[in-house]
Design a protein around this nucleic acid. Sequence first.
DNA 1: TAGATTGTTAATCGATTAACAATC
DNA 2: TAGATTGTTAATCGATTAACAATC
Lengths: 216, 216
Amino acid sequence: MEKEISQAVIRRMPRYYRYLGELLDDGVERISSNELSTRMRVTASQIRQDLNNFGGFGQQGYGYNVKYLYTEIGKILGLDTKHPMIILGAGNLGQALANYVDFEKRGFKLVGIFDVNPVLEGIAVRGIEIQMLSELPLFMKENLVEIAVLTLPKNKAREMADILIQNGVKAIWNFAHVDLDTPDDVIVENVHLSESLMTLSYNLSKYRQEHIIDES
Amino acid sequence: MEKEISQAVIRRMPRYYRYLGELLDDGVERISSNELSTRMRVTASQIRQDLNNFGGFGQQGYGYNVKYLYTEIGKILGLDTKHPMIILGAGNLGQALANYVDFEKRGFKLVGIFDVNPVLEGIAVRGIEIQMLSELPLFMKENLVEIAVLTLPKNKAREMADILIQNGVKAIWNFAHVDLDTPDDVIVENVHLSESLMTLSYNLSKYRQEHIIDES
DNA sequence: TAGATTGTTAATCGATTAACAATC
DNA sequence: TAGATTGTTAATCGATTAACAATC
């Protein structure tokens, strides 16, 4: 069995990818772990350790070739293949994600948008007509869908997750404020925005308290 | 000096808060760390350790009073005070966040929305008229603003962050795909959606690879 | 070759889990 | 009181950093 790569490492990979993309745009050809560490404000040691989980992409005395490393991380992240994706919930958030151009560029191809609201039916978002959620099972039988984005209220989200799973969805990107109960072969990635905002709020309150103490 | 509480712990607090809120809604009066651990799929030990960073909220032989603990965690997260908030970028994402009712309930009070697009000027979102970004400095001088939400393209985001900081913003909730350069007294919470999606993509690809190996 | 920088092992640090005495 | 369950200390586990030999 191969060494298991920790989620901590995995969550840092997209950030490396972003920085390498910027370096590439800036025409930088090579970079050392040391220089990258300065830019990203992490240790060079961590960068080398992280990358070496996936292979030796660098060269002693030279560093890393930006373009090569960028491409390789892209492959690691699965950005070299198409991922057909549907969005459930065509509210502001669903539409925001639908309109997000960069996803398409990375292989995440929007193939369907669904909502319960009949008023939205037929309205096109990025060339894709909003369909009724009731049509979802049939749609999934006729089309290959890999990723489902859940931008629905939490009561509806659980129910829809079940339908998605029954119809063979492989991954759920969940924006609803619930923890979904899913089998092991369905990947779930949660984005709990309110929890993110509460973390901000905590850090703000804490900083204030410490600052008040300093002043006294 | 008091013991520093790790960000790992802090990021779990909103989740406890969510589960306790649900228990409260369900009319549950008390809960033991053990039962909560089953529901949340974490260890009871972790729950007790986490909570004891902030104080002893439980009682031996009894467990935790749901309502009390819920309220206390709310205070810890700073949800017992008002947080005046502005949104920069009135696109789909900005509007999605503006329309999100729960934030207001938790004390995050939207007081302004700004955009560069003149077409949007004066359009009301949740009773707040969209203003031009050029009016931001004046607005901040006349109004107390604590949190700024950055839902702008990344080139504009850096520039606006500087203006926000100059005008005394305390915290930035950053949805732009850049890491902001901010002084220590400004709290930044990043939501990098594309990085979240890439993590999902990685986990999906990895699962596939492992599964193919299993079948061979 | 000499210098630079990786890949990787070892050391440290921090976070999680286990265990149990304190106590309601 | 006896039973239950916390708060907290100790043990374990994992992640990060440091160091350096390998090597381009």
